[in-house]
Simulated scan of single mutants.
Amino acid sequence: MPDVWPEATQDALRAAAIRWLAVRTNDGLDALTSEEIAEFTFGGQGFRLMDPQRGIRKPRQFTAALSIRTTYRPAGADRPYDDDLGPDGLVRYKWRGGDPDHPENRALREAMLRRVPLIWFWGVGPALYKPVYPVYLIGEEVAQQQFVVATDGLQHLQATESPMEEVLRRYLRQETYRRLHQPVFRSMVMRAYESRCAVCQLRHSPLLDAAHIVEDRHERGIASVRNGLALCKIHHAAYDVGILGLTPELRVEVRADILGEVDGPLLEHGIKKLHGRPLMVVPRRRADRPDPELLQIHYERFRAS
């Protein structure tokens, strides 16, 4: 093929990469290592989707950027995306350096002008990334040296002065959280708990959730691994509705009326027998373990119920 591929071929690779990532990540549930991301092929040849050294990947065969990357930040830098969310509910991605004509910034600008889909590799651990796809660049803020990123097609809609504008902005914030921040939170929690339910050790990723100890609408409900628990869907539901609680010492408690209830084997063995037991899975790194203060907030609410 020539050095620069026809646009149709570039678009075909983008589509193939997104389909491949959907399969490899369990339809967006799981994170991938750098080595796993490097296994992508197109036309029988290996093709790098992510630049291991730079934040912006613009293959020589392309006229526009293919992917962007946000590096992992270790404990002590909770909510690394705070500064990236604008007042309109959309995410921002910074230029490479301060030069608007840097080749990588031009590659992002071309992706914006062509409205082609990009892949955002968000670091959730050392050499571990949560791919978010597709995302689109829908504007550039030169004074702030950044691009405006949409994580959903509806975010291409322009804001107006109508009474619906604030409703639209609230919706966009919710969609941004669902499409970007929540999956990143999930990947960080799954990494910490080695993709196992903290209560029962179930390992099947599609059956696991990243549960908030304190819900995200609470003033302390940050999307940090220390506010997270890896729970299977049954135990997540039981935790959320107050059937199951967790003490600050990481011991499981079951609501008193449930302990006296007679039902089938799921309740008997899957819920009631957990009462008084310690968590079966606790993060190896102390910095990833549940925050006792957050556990206390939820536990007091559980006891009150």
Rank of each mutant, 00 (worst) to 15 (best):
R285C: 03
A256S: 13
H275I: 02
L267I: 10
L229P: 14
R226Q: 15
H269A: 09
N227T: 06
R301N: 13
R289T: 10
I271Y: 01
V281G: 06
G260S: 08
E268S: 06
L294V: 03
V241W: 04
D240A: 05
H236N: 15
L274R: 13
P278F: 01
A230L: 03
H236G: 13
D263N: 12
V254Y: 08
S224F: 02
P292G: 08
H235W: 07
E249V: 00
R303E: 11
H269V: 07
D240G: 03
V241D: 15
K272I: 10
P283Y: 10
K273W: 08
E261S: 07
E293W: 04
D257R: 00
E261Y: 06
F302N: 11
M280I: 02
I258T: 13
D257L: 03
T247S: 14
E253R: 15
H275E: 05
V241A: 03
G264Q: 10
K233P: 03
R301D: 14
P248C: 00
G260I: 01
G228T: 09
V254C: 04
Q296N: 14
H269Q: 14
M280V: 07
V252I: 14
C232H: 12
A237I: 00
D257T: 04
I258M: 06
H235Y: 07
S224W: 01
L231H: 04
Y239L: 11
A237N: 07
L295G: 02
G242S: 08
L295T: 02
L259D: 05
P248E: 00
L244F: 05
H269C: 05
I234N: 07
Q296V: 00
K272M: 08
V262H: 11
E261C: 01
P278Q: 07
G242F: 09
G260W: 02
M280D: 09
K272A: 09
D291H: 11
D288C: 05
P283C: 11
A304S: 14
L295C: 03
A287C: 10
Y299A: 05
L246A: 01
D291S: 11
R277H: 13
V252E: 06
A237L: 11
P283V: 12
